[in-house]
Amino acid sequence: MRTRKLGNDGLAVPEIGLGCWQLGGGWGKDWDNEVAQQILQQSYDAGVRFIDTADVYGDGASERSIGQFLKTHPDITVATKLGRGAMYPSGYTRDAVRKATQDSLQRLGTDKLDLTQLHCVPPAVLRDGKIFDWLREMRDDGLISRFGASVETVEEGLVCLEQEGLTSLQIIFNIFRQKPLQELLPKALEKGVGIIVRLPLASGLLSGKMRSDTVFAAADHRNFNRDGQQFNVGETFAGLEFATGVALSEQVAAFVPGTMNMAQMALRWLLDHEAVSVVIPGASNTAQAQANASASALAPLPAAVHQGLADLYRDHVHAAIRGPY
């Protein structure tokens, strides 16, 4: 698999990684470590060497499953996140951040985190800036190698880009959510900050497999947060109302080249942007893991496809997106 730089310190990572929110469970299903190990192995066999998790995924189960896999596959770069657990929304202290880091180290079975990221912490905490001082201190103390931030809006990303030592920004960016192209991605590229793309398939809308009558499990965020009832609405279906998203995905289908499916096109679209370092689609089974990794080998999309998708976003998608963006 092709590799790209993540940040300014020379770290190279494969351009397709694995997002581990639903690794082995979550999204309405109980955690199954055996499934997690199978998905990790299939992804590894396909060339994936970058995986992204968080301390709250599966209440720590995601990190524990990854820690088990790392024992026999130490050549993987692991990015985790902190800030949406016990300290959210107003308990951000130096001690709380260090404890969250130490807990992740224990679950992952390592003595130093490759990359830790702030996990969609409140904008006021980002603007205050103290939390970045604590991250730099942990880097200097040897608990972490690098730090970054996962954000919900372009404005939050721009605030983070002003912080010295920032390695990466993790953002929601996909065919339905193109606003980062205007200012955020060019500035990140200028500063040498890596871009990690989450929700590249817009919670499955860009897989081309969803219909207006698709039913999700009660505990699946695509059911309980489809209108932002529990957290930022942009984390689910890119902020689109579900039926609207399905209808728009049918318009996207018209641009899919005959050599690929919609999910592959959506991933290839992201990889065609120079500022993107790594895309982290999730996988709930081994077939999805293999299919996601295959996008790296595809040729760039024709200019006409890029223009058509840009026009679709401008004319039909942008105004339909709900929530902070």
Rank of each mutant, 00 (worst) to 15 (best):
3 T>D: 07
3 T>G: 04
5 K>P: 03
8 N>V: 07
8 N>I: 10
8 N>E: 09
9 D>I: 05
15 E>P: 00
18 L>D: 01
19 G>T: 10
23 L>E: 08
23 L>F: 13
23 L>Y: 09
30 D>H: 10
32 D>L: 10
32 D>C: 12
46 A>L: 00
47 G>N: 04
50 F>I: 14
56 V>E: 13
59 D>A: 15
61 A>Y: 04
63 E>T: 09
65 S>E: 11
67 G>W: 06
71 K>F: 01
74 P>F: 13
74 P>H: 06
78 V>W: 02
90 S>V: 12
90 S>H: 13
90 S>Q: 11
91 G>N: 08
92 Y>W: 11
94 R>D: 12
107 R>V: 05
108 L>Y: 11
110 T>K: 08
114 D>Q: 06
114 D>T: 03
116 T>D: 04
120 C>I: 00
125 V>E: 13
128 D>G: 12
131 I>K: 05
132 F>R: 06
134 W>R: 12
136 R>G: 11
141 D>A: 15
145 S>M: 07
146 R>A: 13
152 E>W: 07
157 G>W: 07
159 V>R: 04
162 E>S: 12
169 L>G: 09
173 F>L: 06
178 Q>A: 09
185 L>P: 08
188 A>M: 12
191 K>E: 01
198 R>Q: 00
199 L>F: 06
200 P>R: 00
204 G>N: 03
205 L>K: 04
214 T>P: 06
219 A>P: 01
220 D>C: 06
234 G>Q: 09
234 G>I: 08
237 F>G: 01
239 G>F: 03
239 G>H: 03
242 F>A: 04
243 A>T: 15
243 A>D: 15
253 A>N: 11
260 M>I: 08
265 M>F: 06
266 A>E: 06
268 R>H: 03
269 W>P: 02
270 L>K: 05
274 E>C: 06
278 V>M: 03
279 V>E: 03
286 T>Y: 05
291 A>G: 07
297 A>L: 14
298 L>A: 06
299 A>Y: 03
299 A>M: 14
301 L>A: 03
301 L>N: 03
307 Q>C: 04
310 A>C: 08
311 D>I: 15
312 L>W: 11
317 V>A: 11
320 A>I: 02
323 G>D: 11
